[in-house]
């Protein structure tokens, strides 16, 4: 069984993100980039399936600029077997990404696709769900545990009320939550070995996917600065402020 894991190149979680002065997006020049942390969890989950003997091959897929190859190398250094890079200069939106992934999945034939529940740059939380719909596969989002059965998987999901365990039929699209696992670090020898692992390169056009944006960004602004608090004299004043100023009650 093959497991396919999409990995996104995002601004490193340690970087203090700055909005571009023209308000069209955020500054990415000379900024440290790394793999979306939820995707690292996805790679780790796939590697554990392989180490448990449930999967034979782990394929890492990235979509974006040429440097996304580094993100794939990170996955290969962690232990993925091979990579696929779909090179495009266009900013890929969730729907386009899902369409590209669908085309690759139809070629590769994995039975499990593990995505991060969202990417920490745009926080869309859409790609996994869209992909499942396009493929007509079962979906299990926000996974904190994966147990494989015979042609099925028991997946524990982190939901508002606590934990929910569902049984899904394979093939399945899974999206990872933070507590699924703690991803490993790549060892120095595996970083070197990763350079010899193959990465297939293709374009969205090769896969017949139209990347034309469906979304238009109107403006990107910094969150408003946090303001200092005020002290209230009485409970009455507090209730009054909550009702009329904050409008929360």
């Amino acid at each position: 069984m093959k497991v396919l894991v999409p990995v996104k190149r995002v601004i490193d979680y340690n970087v203090k993100v700055r909005v571009k002065s023209d308000g069209t997006g955020v500054e990415t020049a000379n900024v440290k980039m790394s793999m979306n942390p939820f995707d690292e969890i996805g790679i780790e989950a796939a590697l554990r399936l392989k180490e448990a003997g449930s999967a034979e091959e782990v394929i890492a897929v990235s979509i974006g600029v040429a440097q996304c190859q580094e993100t794939i190398r990170t996955a290969l250094a962690m232990g993925a077997d091979r990579g696929v890079l779909v090179e495009t200069e266009e900013g890929a939106e969730p729907l386009a990404v899902a369409k590209i992934l669908k085309a690759i999945i139809e070629k590769e034939g994995p039975e499990i696709v593990i995505l991060g529940k969202q990417a920490i740059d745009d926080d869309s939380n859409q790609t996994g769900q869209m992909l499942s719909a396009l493929l007509g596969w079962s979906q299990a989002t926000f996974a904190s545990n994966i147990e494989l059965g015979d042609g099925t998987a028991d997946i524990t999901r982190e939901v508002d009320g606590g934990l929910e365990t569902i049984k899904v039929k394979l093939p399945v699209v899974v999206t990872t939550d933070l507590r699924l696992n703690e991803p490993r670090y790549a060892s120095l020898p595996n970083i070197m070995k990763a350079k010899k692992k193959p990465i297939d390169k293709m374009s969205p056009a090769d896969l017949g996917v139209d990347m034309t944006p469906r979304l238009k960004t109107l403006s990107v602004v910094e969150p408003s600065k946090r303001e200092g608090g005020v002290k209230v004299e009485s409970v009455e004043e507090l209730v009054e402020k909550l009702r009329n100023e904050a409008k929360v009650i």
Binding site: N30, K32, S34, E70, R73, T74, A77, Y185, A186, S187, L188, I191, M192, K195
Partner: peptide, 23 residues
């Protein structure tokens, strides 16, 4: 973080990531 970070090879950035994470 240092200016040198931008001068490191792709491999060295990967070694650095691994060592930094562990450390």
């Amino acid at each position: 973080m240092s200016l040198l970070d931008g001068r490191l090879s792709e491999d060295q950035r990967a070694f650095q990531d691994s060592a930094r994470g562990f450390s």
